[in-house]
Amino acid sequence: MVDTALAADIGWMDVKTVITGICLVIGCFFIIVASIGIIRFPDFYSRIHPAGKTDTLGQSMVLIGLMVYEGFSLVSVKLLIIIIFIFIANPTATHALANAAYVAGLKPWQKGDRRK
């Protein structure tokens, strides 16, 4: 009786750890791809695409993994607040950057131009 309860407990822990690991791996993959994109893309307007999208999803995936690991507690509520804030603030910051570059008169890169 005790043994089965223990086994069920271990099984749930394993499932939780595996879900956390998958979320962390996906999140880290997206974050690294975002960094590669920021290095590889040819001009400023293309570079804000990875910064605004891939980074947002990657960070949210890592934080969701931490939430799953933590279970339901005050810490996971705080993580949820951080996720909502990132989802609102990250696109806004990118939009502000793009607008500043546009006001400063930066022209977008066309196919065939030299990379800058």
């Binding site: 960094s35 920021i38 910064a51 950057l97």
Partner: peptide, 9 residues
Amino acid sequence: CDRVLAINV
């Protein structure tokens, strides 16, 4: 702009 973007990320 690129530098500010990098700092933000």
